[in-house]
Simulated assay, not measured.
Amino acid sequence: MLRVRDERDTDAFSALFSHFAPRIKGFLINSGTDPATAEECAQDVMATLWHKAAQFDPTRATVATWVFTIARNRRTDIFRRDRRPEPEDLTWGPEPEPDQAEVIAFQQEATLLRTALADLPEEQRSLIQQAYFGDLSQSEIATLTGLPLGTIKSRIRLALEKLRHSLK
């Protein structure tokens, strides 16, 4: 990967492609993607790897973690694209106004959650944000932060307990 990043080495990219493309396709198929879409997505991931090689930082993640994060994000993008309604399925005209009591309740809950998150220690808040707002797995967080997986799991569990207690 470093040769691809630093020298734009096509032979190194070919080796990466041979190694990762079938694994990405298998990962996507195992996660419920149809084979044709998985193939298309794997090709797109490898093209992204080539075009964004300069963004690879071995101090933040291994090559495999970086590649499979790109694959997971691309799969999510495809899923969202495929789930978008066709224009003829969209409703036309104004949407009905939501019940004001529900809007106020939602706003109050959101405020409580923001306050509860702000009250967490930084190391716990950061992990909660990466896991739930950044959509990263605990293993990916461990790789990115350099912390042991057990530490990540403990801190997230403690943070969730504190949030539950704060939101009661």
Rank of each mutant, 00 (worst) to 15 (best):
H19S: 14
I78H: 06
A105P: 11
Q55V: 10
T69D: 03
Q108V: 11
M46W: 06
T48Q: 08
Q43E: 06
P98V: 04
T62N: 05
A12K: 06
M46N: 12
P22D: 03
T65A: 01
V103H: 02
P94N: 05
D9M: 08
Q55Y: 08
E39I: 04
L49Q: 10
D34T: 09
E40Q: 12
R81D: 07
Q43D: 07
E88S: 05
I29F: 06
G26Q: 15
E39L: 11
T33C: 09
T69P: 01
A47T: 14
S14N: 12
A53Y: 04
R84A: 09
F68R: 05
Q100L: 13
E88M: 02
I70M: 13
P85C: 08
I78S: 04
G32A: 06
I104D: 09
A21I: 06
C41T: 13
P35R: 01
D89G: 15
I78C: 01
R84N: 10
D57I: 11
L112Y: 08
A116C: 11
F106Q: 14
E88I: 05
R80V: 05
I29P: 08
T37C: 04
I70Y: 03
A110M: 12
A110Y: 10
L49F: 11
E88Y: 03
T48E: 03
L90W: 06
T10C: 07
P94Q: 10
F17E: 06
R74E: 09
P35W: 01
R75E: 00
E39R: 13
V63F: 04
T62Y: 02
